[in-house]
Amino acid sequence: MDRASRNLRILFVAVPGAFMAALMLAPAFEGLVLSFDRCGPSLGNYDVLFADPMFWRALANNLIIPAGSLALELAAGLLLALYLTARPKPSAVVEIAAVLPFAIPEIVLLTLARYLFMPRGYVNAALVEAGFHPLGWLLPNHALALLTVIIVDAWHVTPVVMLILMGGLQSIAPEIYEAAALDGAGTFATFRHITLPLLFPSIVAAVVLRGVDALRIFSTTLVLTGAEGVPVLSTYAYQQWTDAQQQRVAMAASVILALAITIIGLAAAGAMRRFGTAEAPR
């Protein structure tokens, strides 16, 4: 319209924009600068970082855990979405229960997970009662602890994947299923040749959205195993900040993580543009 409404829109972008820039972008930039500073411009912080075996373990875990968690939540989310959209529709109680792990605060879920998986926790109690040996679910530096973290992380976010896929499933026209039924397609053939291809854009969207978030994993490992039990980059930075008092090294580690997220995120966004809206591959 006219100048006045244009000015209002500029103001409406500028105020929230400046607020976010001051509280998120400016600190991030400051952290980037400080990570290259050690009493003067220096790569020293990164030298310290790259010489620390713990950093490399954190980096590896930071890639393994999101990959495992993503695969698990995709499988579980798909099963739940198929189940909840199938007829006869399950009751509202079931739907609420399925969403619950994401609806409650993450820290509450992690507290619960700790009580379940700790050495004298309920999972081990159930194992013993069933005649098995108790397991070290949270044993530091152990593959099983990595698996526990993956399971708990997937437990928390599976409802999100489920909701995204439910949206996709509900948008598939019933006529397509009718046509398939008339052609004599069985349950599995229908799923394989109709549901899965038409659901593909939703699956890609879920992978991209959750994948980028999964890389930021912090509280799951911190609460379950402590900063050093199963280190990831965020808990490594936290541990450098608090226990080691190495502020600049902590910032360097955060920069590496931001870099990894940006690269993987841009690649994922590219993949989403390519596959997300396109027809499904044959």
Binding site: P27, A28, L34, S234, Y238, M251, A253, S254, T262
Partner: peptide
């Protein structure tokens, strides 16, 4: 802002 990890913002 989605791409920024928590510690990259919180520490500075």
């Amino acid at each position: 802002t989605r791409l920024l990890p928590m510690t990259a913002v919180a520490l500075p």
